[in-house]
């Protein structure tokens, strides 16, 4: 098909692909912002593991975990193209904006999924590769296709997909799953709902218009505030438990005390507020707690990394820390 006929057919069918995508459009399909969290938590899982990994093997492991995460993002955009066209936040994504065809995004996502899983298996081991394959399956099939449009608990169960990367990083180094990696998984899994619901409290209209059942619409904003506090309380034992495993340490314990106190205070304030107070200050507290929740997870994982570094240098309180 010549360029001229391609352009002519694009004019006649504006919903179809109207432009040739650039390299940046395909990169945008990988959800680079989400990928940054995947890379960071997977890197901490890999570096905190009690096994030394060759730098090139470690780099390849993180790269293929990131590509796997990006591939699941591309498949999510392919599946959710219809609702992405409705929501203001997602209208400019490559598919709704008409820069990439849905079929292209699907092919791109499937190809990258296969490459990332096989390459992670060859570079490290097939426990890590199996976990990555399951993560992609969970995010695309369980979360995107099944839970997201069906239940307001979508974010609770679907949060598991975002919780797997440190476990995959750990498995890439050790070839196994252990209590430490399971606790890192549970930490992100329990953290996701209050983090996301704080966002949903001030981004309400976007999800309503797309017909995605969010707790704020199906059960009301009072119930959402209750849930934020409940999940933040549930986060406490998980985050403190990590402090007493082989990857915990003095830095992590101090960080856990401070960050949990901050997060809990924020969740408590959200719980005490009503809608009138929230609307009066433009959801300032909800926005602050959302921001704090990001610092919370980042801070805890940085603390794990600091303790691992000191342990590697054989400094006394760090080497003999775990119970």
């Amino acid at each position: 098909m010549s360029d001229a006929s391609m352009n002519a057919s694009a004019i006649q069918t504006p919903d179809c692909q109207t432009k040739d995508a650039g390299f940046g459009d395909f990169f945008a399909l990988l959800k680079p912002r989400v990928m940054s969290l995947v890379v960071f938590t997977a890197l901490v899982g890999l570096l905190a593991a009690p096994v030394s990994v060759h730098p090139i093997v470690g780099f390849a492991a993180i790269l293929f975990i990131a590509i796997g995460g990006g591939a699941s993002g591309a498949l999510n955009m392919w599946w959710d193209a219809d609702i992405d066209r409705i929501m203001k936040r997602t209208k400019s994504r490559p598919i709704p904006a008409g820069r990439i065809a849905e079929g292209e995004a699907f092919g791109f996502g499937i190809a990258l999924s296969g490459i990332s899983v096989v390459m992670l298996g060859l570079a490290t081991n097939f426990v890590a590769a199996g976990l990555l394959a399951f993560t992609i399956f969970f995010y695309v099939v369980i979360y995107s296709m099944w839970l997201k449009r069906w239940t307001p608990q979508n974010i609770v169960i679907g949060g598991a997909a975002g919780a797997f990367p440190p476990m995959i990083g750990w498995a890439a180094a050790t070839g196994s799953v252990s209590i430490e990696s399971v606790l890192m998984f549970i930490l992100i899994f329990t953290w996701t709902p209050p983090h996301f619901w704080a966002l949903a409290l001030f981004m309400k209209s976007d999800y309503d218009e797309a017909g995605v059942p969010m707790l704020t619409s199906t059960h009301g904003r009072r119930v959402t505030r209750n849930h934020i506090l409940a999940y933040t309380i549930m986060l406490l034992p998980v985050s403190f438990a990590l402090a007493f495993t082989s990857i915990g340490g003095p830095t992590y314990l101090v960080a856990a005390v401070l960050l949990n106190a901050l997060f809990l205070r924020g969740a408590w304030t959200i719980w005490r507020r009503d809608e009138a107070a929230a609307e009066a200050d433009g959801f300032a507290t909800e926005k602050k707690v959302f921001r704090h929740s990001l610092y919370y997870l980042f801070g805890l994982f940085v603390a794990i990394l600091i303790d691992a570094t000191f342990r590697g240098m054989d400094i006394a309180p760090f080497t003999s820390w775990s119970l």
Partner: peptide, 27 residues
Amino acid sequence: RRFSRNLGLGLVLAAFVALIFGLTVAK
């Protein structure tokens, strides 16, 4: 736009070859 895509793909493939070589040496 096509040039940017082709150039990007070329660089990605070159980086992939370099990575496989590096991995082989490391292993």
